[in-house]
Simulated assay, not measured.
Amino acid sequence: MIKNSVKNYVLPFSICLTIALALYPNSSLNAEMYSTDGLDLNYNIKSDLAMVGDNDNSISTTFTPHLGKSFEGFKEALAFKESRGDYFTVNTLGYLGKYQFGAETLKLLGIYNTNQFLNNPELQEKAFIANASRNKWVLRKDIKRFDGKYIGGVLITESGILAAAHLAGPGTVKKFLRSYGDYNFSDAYGSTVKHYMKKFSGYDTSIIKPNKKAKAVI
């Protein structure tokens, strides 16, 4: 008898609750029911569950949430330092985009319309590769000479050299290396060649090929 009475009350209540949630999706009732307050959300998903290939039967075995010391890791770490990864930002000195290019450097890469550049993420990525290729060509002898050595307590690596060249230009990096750190350029915001050498040390930049005349083309 009691069981029947409970059923008679619970079923109508459940129906009314469902209707109320559908009619008032933004109500405080919904907010309370779906609140994450007090829940432990700090967990990791297994890699074999995180990424699925082009078809449902293909599970990616290469997924990683960390870019590490890969070339993508290098690009994104440098971009975060330059602009926090914002394609559409311009700093107080007029440097543009995700990688903070100056107008004169862009001209070397074949880019003359800064507005077009600022609004085109694909072009910005091409410009980064082209600029790194040009810098690697200019610094190719210095990379061979100094890679693996220490200057002022900093391990010199190819990625550190390329990052510093992005900051200050390849000529400035030559001066730093050949003076064994005595010439340590600092930009308007206080970033130095030595700091970039250390911060971006040890990334895999082998994908960048030296090219004296590299241009950003899409």
Rank of each mutant, 00 (worst) to 15 (best):
D54S: 08
K194R: 15
A216T: 06
V193C: 10
K194M: 14
I207M: 08
V193N: 05
E72L: 13
I208Y: 03
G94S: 05
D147T: 15
A188D: 07
K199P: 03
N26T: 00
A79I: 09
L109Y: 09
T61Q: 06
N184P: 01
M197F: 12
F74C: 12
G160Q: 12
R84K: 12
G110Y: 15
R178T: 15
R178S: 10
T172I: 06
K209W: 12
Y95G: 03
L17W: 08
D40Q: 07
K194N: 13
N120C: 10
S186W: 02
P170Q: 08
S83E: 01
G153I: 10
S35W: 00
N113W: 10
L177Y: 08
G153N: 13
A168C: 14
M197A: 10
S159A: 03
Q100F: 08
F200Y: 11
K194S: 14
I111D: 02
D40L: 01
R140N: 14
D48F: 15
V217N: 15
N113H: 10
K3C: 11
Y99F: 12
V217M: 15
N211S: 09
S70A: 06
N184V: 04
Y180D: 03
Q116Y: 11
G94Q: 07
P65R: 05
F176I: 00
E158R: 12
D86S: 06
I111S: 02
L39C: 04
N115G: 03
N184G: 04
Y95I: 07
S179E: 02
I15W: 10
E158C: 11
G190E: 13
K46E: 14
E158D: 10
L93M: 15
K75Y: 12
T114C: 00
K69I: 04
E32P: 02
T18F: 15
N55L: 00
N4S: 15
K3G: 08
